[in-house]
Nucleic acid binder design. Sequence first.
DNA 1: CCCACGGTTCGGCGGGCGCCGAAGTGTCCC
DNA 2: GGGACACTTCGGCGCCCGCCGAACCGTGGG
Lengths: 231, 231
Amino acid sequence: MSVQPLARLAGLLADPTRAAICLALLDGRAWTAGELAHHVGVVASTASEQLSRLVAGGLLVEERQGRHRYLRLAGPGTAALVEDMAAFAAEPGSAPAPRNLRDSVRRSAEARARTCYDHLAGRLGVALADALLARGVVADDTGLTVTAPGRAWLAGIGIDLDRARRGSRPMVRSCLDWTERRPHLAGVLGTALRARAMDGGWLAPVGTGRALRVTPSGADALHELFGVTLD
Amino acid sequence: MSVQPLARLAGLLADPTRAAICLALLDGRAWTAGELAHHVGVVASTASEQLSRLVAGGLLVEERQGRHRYLRLAGPGTAALVEDMAAFAAEPGSAPAPRNLRDSVRRSAEARARTCYDHLAGRLGVALADALLARGVVADDTGLTVTAPGRAWLAGIGIDLDRARRGSRPMVRSCLDWTERRPHLAGVLGTALRARAMDGGWLAPVGTGRALRVTPSGADALHELFGVTLD
DNA sequence: CCCACGGTTCGGCGGGCGCCGAAGTGTCCC
DNA sequence: GGGACACTTCGGCGCCCGCCGAACCGTGGG
């Protein structure tokens, strides 16, 4: 086992600017270099250099379009690693006080419902995980698995896991939610659930961040299908 | 989500000395400060300072006995995080050339069979995972789960998963083996398998490292029970 | 009580790196 | 063709940190 690769990987995230960039990209979208510079609060030259290091280190991939440089996380594996590290690092109650009302509102919204790279997180994500366990769609007593009746139930609400599957990606994976400190569901099921919720109009983005709001029809659907009610 | 905690956590592992310490402790044992200093090749004062930072940062826990300071990884979650980062960071063929014959022999032994914190890794670990999948003891089509017939089979070879369970720990978890680049099994099942193999005398440590050798009776048992043969 | 061992504390040294401004390059629009 | 925009390159600055030696402290053995 090699020490240097681990130290280099960790070194990429040891700088607050680079860490903030990766956390921003956990929303699953591609951002331009300028947007990332503005978001993390550095000038363009700093952002350019730091982005190049993240690309060279394998955490991000880039794409040029005209004079714009688009950056995104290198893949689900990279997102899972950053998520796991962020969840491990976060301590309950350790977040700094909100800077202003806007910041506080944003945080409440994200804690309520948000995307976590390609699946649902926040109180909604955890509530959905609990509901699927309670309904026997997912079982965790002998591992973490989608049950046979669960597959049928999911097909009944428009989620076809076979069609959603990709390569060797796990069907379902537990992902520790750092605002709730309890797990929500990632993997093929997690992605399919998020896609179903967005396509079905149950959830809609709030502004440009990761927060999601439950639409009126979504509230009905979540209550009827999952027994989930969010305040 | 907070940037600073992630950067601080990553910063702990960004230094090669601290990274080497954590990797050494993946063998699951407690080491003294002096042993760790010697292993990573720094003087006692450097080791002392770096160990204190790792303890303060939450990655290690310490215990004093007389004039000895014992250090170990803070828990399975810490081990899983370090393992995942090391697996992510490792690239096939990226390990530096062996320094000498002893180093080469050690690496071959570790690639063949070794412990990975609290479960089996290396070609043996991967072969056992394959065998359990092939025999239907574990299924991964709908998630990763120990099957009902699998539980019975395991009980037949002396592995009682209910007794082995601890808290909310997952029954079975996939862990990417960085020498084989394929998964072996962690979680309650992984730990129980390693314990059965050690208690049954199938495997024995090689020296003081993580490498394990298959005993003659172990070779018979592994072949008879799992259909596994290691060269 | 003395000595050895294991580990700690602290100041000094040297190297690395993040940030920025200035100048430059490539793309796009008028 | 010219100007604006997005981004890149590079040198300078200041700060941080890993490592070590020396001195010290606590524990244990003779």
